Amino acid sequence: MFVNILQTSKSSSQKPNPWRISLQRLFFLRAAAQFVNSSEHQPMKHLSRAEIAVIKARILRGDLYAEIAADYRINQGRIADLKFGRIFAEVAPADLSDASVAG
């Protein structure tokens, strides 16, 4: 059953005002905006810079996005962001010649 979140009155004779938003919805929108705009919101907080360097090296090596994403439990879109320098552009790729970090 569809519930109109903008409708505040159950009376069928009164039309709902589309400009009137419930307080619950207003607080939700405010909290969502604060989260998105907060400086604490950083992509991939659970990965260290060393892991990001290894991911970048695996991208350069030609590993599939899906394999890398599955290994680190991240979205394939974040792999593309790393590849094109949209996030963590300052982190250089690791040297994968060492067998212990080859993944």
Rank of each mutant, 00 (worst) to 15 (best):
A33F: 13
N75Y: 10
F88V: 02
I5T: 08
D95T: 02
L60V: 07
R86M: 04
S9E: 09
A69K: 08
N4M: 07
E67K: 15
S9L: 02
S38F: 10
I59A: 00
K56V: 05
I59E: 03
A66L: 13
Q7M: 04
A57Y: 05
P16W: 03
S12P: 02
F84I: 12
R20N: 13
Q14L: 11
S22H: 00
G77I: 08
W19E: 12
S9H: 03
R49M: 10
G103I: 02
A53Q: 01
Q14S: 05
A102Y: 07
V54R: 13
R25E: 12
D95G: 02
Y65K: 11
H46T: 04
I87K: 03
E51S: 06
A89N: 11
A57S: 07
A33D: 14
M1D: 10
S12N: 04
S22C: 03
Q76V: 07
M44K: 04
K15M: 01
A31E: 11
A32N: 15
G103Y: 09
N75F: 10
G77Q: 14
L82D: 02
A92N: 12
S39R: 15
A31F: 06
R30Q: 14
V91T: 02
S39V: 13
L6D: 07
H41E: 14
S38M: 10
I5V: 08
I68V: 10
S13Q: 09
V3H: 05
M1E: 10
I79F: 06
L29D: 15
L82N: 01
R58M: 09
R49W: 06
P18Y: 01
D98F: 05
P16L: 01
D98H: 08
L47N: 02
S100R: 15
I74G: 00
A102V: 06
D71N: 15
F35W: 12
V3T: 09
S39P: 06
L82T: 03
N17I: 02
F88I: 00
L29H: 12
D98E: 09
T8I: 06
I74V: 13
A92C: 06
I68Q: 08
V3R: 10
R25L: 13
M1N: 12
R49F: 09
A50P: 01
W19M: 13
D63K: 09
E90W: 05
R30G: 07
